[in-house]
């Protein structure tokens, strides 16, 4: 199988997930996930609502609302589950949130620079001053075609759905993560915004970085071409394949994989 070949042939493993189980409250959502991501790859994680896609993204980022009950996750040789959310971020893991959070009264510029400097500090680099940072931001704003005026607005407060998603991609462009996880970044975006977001992701692509794209629809994958596509259903990866798998899913629907069984009542 091609996925297996890819695994054994490549020694540049970035993320390795084995038998991962996780629950929120009393409800078990992840029921044994196995996944390996190598540097340089783009993985798409697809699946119906309630299959556990977003939970997987949140667990990788370390959201304390989710409890890992079994399994292991190794990131660049480190035990990821032992790391605090901020340590994961400092080690290069970035989650583009499905629902970006509003922080009223805190300007985007201030927030961006604070995050940028924390991540630089963790890499042993010097912090940058506001002036120097303004120069960096100017270039990055172009990547997502955003108005510089957004820098003086409060973080996500009063942003439209599309602006919030673009703001996530802007953060990703600024923080330059090694492993970016995009949680349904395409949901609620019109076609222009979708293209801008995808361009942003593609521009960041490098052999030493990897991306996990969590999405319900195949649409985004026209712009961000995945190396591997996984289908998640009822807390497990039920099928993996190349980019053509996404097209097949789009055509035949999730019932084709899940055998018509409802994968979950709610999103």
């Amino acid at each position: 199988m091609e996925v297996q070949d890819r695994h054994s042939a490549n020694t540049n493993v970035m993320l390795e997930i084995h038998g991962l189980h996780a629950k929120v409250g009393d409800k078990e959502i992840l029921k044994g996930i196995d996944l390996t991501v190598n540097a340089g790859e783009v993985h798409a994680v697809m699946g119906p609502n309630g299959s556990g896609k977003s939970t997987l993204a949140q667990v990788l980022a370390g959201n304390p609302a989710y409890e890992v009950t079994a399994g292991s996750v190794t990131y660049e040789g480190r035990d990821l589950l032992e790391m605090q959310p901020e340590e994961r971020a400092q080690a290069g893991i970035f989650l583009a949130f499905q629902y970006p959070v509003e922080i009223p009264g805190v300007s985007n510029a201030y927030f961006f620079r604070a995050a940028y400097n924390e991540i630089r500090k963790a890499r042993g680099e010097e912090e940058v001053d506001p002036l120097e940072f303004a120069g960096i931001m100017e270039q990055k704003l172009e990547v997502v075609e955003m108005d510089p005026a957004m820098l003086s607005r409060s973080v996500n407060a009063g942003f439209s759905g599309g602006e919030k998603k673009r703001n996530e991609i802007l953060q990703m462009a600024v923080l330059e993560p090694k492993l970016a996880i995009l949680d349904e970044t395409d949901s609620g975006l019109d076609i222009d915004a979708l293209r801008i977001v995808a361009d942003g992701v593609n521009k960041l692509k490098r052999p030493d970085r990897a991306t996990i794209v969590v999405t319900h629809y195949q649409r985004l994958l026209n712009y961000i071409v995945p190396d591997v596509v996984h289908v998640l259903a009822n807390g497990r990866i039920v099928k993996s394949g190349g980019k053509e798998l996404a097209l097949e899913l789009e055509e035949k629907g999730y019932d084709w994989i899940t055998g018509g069984a409802p994968a979950g009542a709610t999103a």
């Binding site: 901020e86 922080i103 963790a122």
Partner: peptide, 10 residues
């Protein structure tokens, strides 16, 4: 809000 900011390295 706290998790969001921690995810950005704070």
């Amino acid at each position: 809000q706290i998790f969001y900011l921690k995810q950005r390295g704070l």
